[in-house]
Design a protein around this nucleic acid. Structure first.
Lengths: 335, 335
DNA sequence: TTGTAAGCGTTATCAC
DNA sequence: GTGATAACGCTTACAA
């Protein structure tokens, strides 16, 4: 058996020689193209013997298919992002695709740079959870976004944020709250996530419930919330008795502040967050929350990115959310 | 300008034609091989105009370099794994490499299967945090493991587990503990992680402190610990006053159990865990803990995997840990 | 220096 | 159904 010049691996040519058939036949075997049964056997035996594996790079060069998808995600420190990444990766793998992971660190420039990197890599598609409102994406490569709209031709997958906001308001009201508050901090750019507020407010208005909302653009500090909250504490009594926070993360910070101010949760004020990722250590939710269907979001992204005919894709797919109690609401009271 | 047959992207040939130079010259420009200044200018202009990007697949086919590294990790739900993955990915990207992420789900077969997948993909190296004790790895491809030993020729990167165990014992003793306990649950196969116990015990013996330890193989339940602990509670009083848990995760479960039994932490018993990943929501440690240097581990893995001359690699690299109080120890007492 | 041409390991199009 | 052979887009001797 001849060794190739490099320390290199066997090629189809080697398999062909070993099996005593032609190169083309070997290729057909590995592409499930009909071939005489005896030939197939010989090829398979030879491949086995040589430990042959098809070279995806050579194949990709010919077919323009790489069986790999790039995922752009801001960070894996956020449990929602890491859960999403986990599910997307698993889902891709189960379909024979590889995930090229790119961490963008919430940096709009990094996002754009990743796209050119990925472009060089000739991936078959990109799934992106990004913050750059005017990300320049190459129309020639399949793209799916999570929570953000980039272009009407690019499908966006998200949880049903509007419904989530409604659910939160409905729940707080049914749990006996009389005066509601919505708190949000995050990116200024418009995304699906903004609809949480709209859903929340629609219920408040419909039921003629008192409510207020405070929206903070993402400056890195929640201080303004605390200033606001402080102004609304009179005689150690909170003016609001139900708070819907845009995320579980924000809810955690608000709870820490309230504790420090001597306001009890859920006795004095009930809180609902959004995301619904369970704490890894305790297995519990961090707070009562609107749970995002992480797996369904992941599966939908993967399905959409792999669709061959991209002429008639949905521009938006909304996946159902549900409410889960997590100790920051008084479930026994209302329902 | 001629359009290629497919909807395809410009190639070096196109750039060469556009710039009025030869194919080889274009290649040289993109590989930083000396070329006349005026030629370089022309090529760069043409590339810019055509939005040319080099095709990594074609290049990889020639050079046998793919600029991509595969990472095998059990899951991203575990905060330590997701933090590690985040850092490794960022580190790879900063060096112009891509991360092909593979989730193995703690499944030894999946681990092996990933390796063949990755083999096809012709990655330049593999970083693996795996559980399969007899993983068959191809010696021809650079490999670095985290926390496990596969083969003396394969570098293993880990935190200094022995020192971590020592630190935990030293800390508990200096905080006034008289009777120590070590608790561990996890994979049976021998890895660096096992040294936590040895370090802990070495200090206990040296200082002639009373201690016991309970080791559980990973059957999915911590019940036996609780049975054991229960047996050592007399009159609502715990026999041990200092517990070192193999992980923060285990510490969390032990704490939950103790709370349920009416044992107070840290008043009655002090607890130290291992890992030291801060809670994303509160920014705090989950417990007093031995902190693993996640970033350093990531950087070391990346450095080792990219080393060209693989003839003289260390077989083991231990990175320093430190202790961090996290509310489950009585810091004021001892130090 | 710059251009030319021979592969890298596949797939795909032909004749046979 | 099978076997040559020409691409795919690039790197790299080697020739000019």
């Amino acid at each position: 058996m001849r060794m190739k010049n490099r320390n290199s691996l066997p090629t189809m040519k080697d398999v062909a020689r070993e099996a005593g058939v032609s190169l083309g036949t070997v290729s057909k075997v590995f592409n499930n193209i009909p071939v005489g049964e005896d030939y197939r056997k010989k090829v398979e035996a030879a491949a086995e013997k040589l430990h042959y594996e098809v070279n995806h790079y050579a194949r990709g060069l010919k077919t323009n298919e790489t069986l790999s998808i790039a995922l752009l995600i801001p960070s894996l420190h956020h449990p929602f992002f890491s859960a999403l990444t986990d599910e997307i990766t698993a889902c891709l793998m189960s379909r024979g695709y590889r995930n090229i992971l790119m961490i963008t660190n919430y940096d709009t420039e990094a996002e754009q740079k990743c796209l050119t990197l990925v472009h060089q890599n000739k991936v078959d598609g990109i799934i992106g959870l990004t913050y750059n409102p005017d990300l320049k994406v190459d129309a020639s490569i399949p793209f799916v976004t999570i929570d953000r709209h980039l272009d009407p031709t690019i499908p966006c997958v998200s949880s049903d944020n509007f419904r989530g906001g409604q659910l939160a308001a409905e729940k707080l009201l049914s749990l006996g709250c009389k005066s509601l508050l919505f708190l949000r901090i995050g990116s200024d750019i418009y995304g699906e996530v903004n609809k949480r507020e709209a859903g929340f407010e629609s219920v408040c208005r419909e039921r003629q419930a008192a409510y207020d909302s405070v929206i903070l653009s993402d400056t890195g500090t929640e201080e303004p919330f605390f200033t606001y909250l402080k102004e609304h504490i009179k005689n150690g009594q909170m003016e609001f008795d139900g708070i819907f926070c845009n995320s579980d993360h924000l809810a955690a910070h608000v709870m820490a502040f309230l504790k420090q101010e001597g306001i009890r949760v859920p006795e004095d004020v009930q809180i609902i967050g959004y995301d619904g990722i369970r704490d890894y250590y305790s297995g519990r939710y961090h707070c009562s929350t609107i749970v995002q269907p992480v797996r369904e979001i992941a599966e939908t992204c993967v399905e959409l990115i792999l669709v061959k005919d991209r002429s008639s894709l949905p521009s938006l797919v909304l996946l159902p959310v549900h409410y889960a109690p997590g100790g920051t609401t008084r479930e026994s009271v209302g329902s």
